[in-house]
């Protein structure tokens, strides 16, 4: 047994940057790239999952000398851990186009292998990451309504009555619309001011959810906030300046 060796030099070089991994159609990520670029000193680069997966040379090393990774991208740029101060990970899907003509069995195997590789690589990054991957979703934990409502109930948020069985596996949607959106980032609540009990509930929900950054939509219902929805994929523009400032602090720390 051993303790993992500390990796030095992260984000220390002159080309240190914040990396955003997102599809080119992810407007929230594009907005964030522009907004962060105006706020932080170093570069903010957006790479797509396809650029990573189709990199001509990928090497991820674990458990030995030279632990770390190197992507030599098709555009000639080289990504290494030493260059990253922080990562915004919005990799909700993987590119499989290059496997389209493979035998179905081989394709399924290769897709599983690519997912496993990306999960392991993202999980190995030792810089601040919004969000760290989860086995069920590369962009962070992906919870369905059963988990989300359970967390909400335990956190003290209002939840509608629900009864599920195999014939009715989904709870009916709330008839009201959410009126507030909050973000939980590293245990901080960002969003409209709410009573202390509601704030505690929202923070507790964030802890149960487990992602470094997540958003919660709610409305008022009687004596406590009522849970509507939550996601590990923050809608950055709706978080405004307060969320942007907090994200920049985390990523450029």
């Amino acid at each position: 047994m051993r303790r993992p060796a500390a990796r030095g030099g992260r984000g220390a070089g002159p080309s240190a940057m914040i990396l955003i991994i997102a599809d080119p159609s992810d407007t929230g990520a594009l907005w964030l790239r522009g907004a962060l670029g105006r706020r932080v000193a170093g570069p903010v680069r957006l790479v797509t999952p396809a650029q990573l997966a189709y990199a001509p040379s990928i090497a991820h090393r674990l458990g030995g000398p030279g632990d770390g990774f190197r992507f030599a991208l098709a555009d000639g740029d080289v990504l290494t851990g030493e260059r990253l101060t922080g990562v915004v990970n919005r990799m909700v899907g993987m590119p499989f186009a290059h496997l389209a003509h493979a035998h179905p069995d081989d394709r399924a195997y290769a897709e599983g292998e690519l997912h496993a590789f990306l999960l392991g690589w993202l999980g190995s990054l030792d810089c601040p990451m919004l969000n760290e991957p989860s086995p069920d979703c590369l962009a962070g934990p992906l919870f369905g309504e059963i988990h989300a409502r359970h967390f909400a109930a335990l956190a003290g948020l209002g939840v509608g009555a629900a009864r599920l069985d195999p014939a009715n596996p989904s709870a009916p949607a709330l008839t009201t619309r959410p009126t507030m959106r909050h973000f939980v980032l590293e245990g901080r609540l960002i969003g409209p001011i709410v009573p202390a009990a509601d704030r505690d509930s929202l923070l507790q929900f964030g802890r149960l959810w487990g992602a470094r950054l997540m958003q919660i939509d709610s409305d008022e219902a009687g004596d406590r906030r009522r849970f509507h929805a939550a996601s590990s994929l923050a809608d950055f523009p709706s978080g405004g300046e307060a969320l942007l400032r907090a994200v920049a602090e985390v990523l450029a720390r």
Binding site: M1, R2, R3, P4, A55, P56, S57, I58, A59, H60, R61, L62, G63, G64, P65, H115, A116, F117, L119, G120, W121, G123, S124, P133, S134, P135, D136
Partner: peptide, 28 residues
């Protein structure tokens, strides 16, 4: 699900104090 990716789980195992085999995952 941590076992869905050997390298993902290996990272967790290393952080929990065990040595893991020297590994290279590459397309090169």
């Amino acid at each position: 699900m941590s076992n869905m990716s050997k390298s993902y789980q290996a990272g967790l195992i290393a952080r929990l104090g065990f040595a893991i085999p020297e590994t290279l995952i590459t397309n090169d």
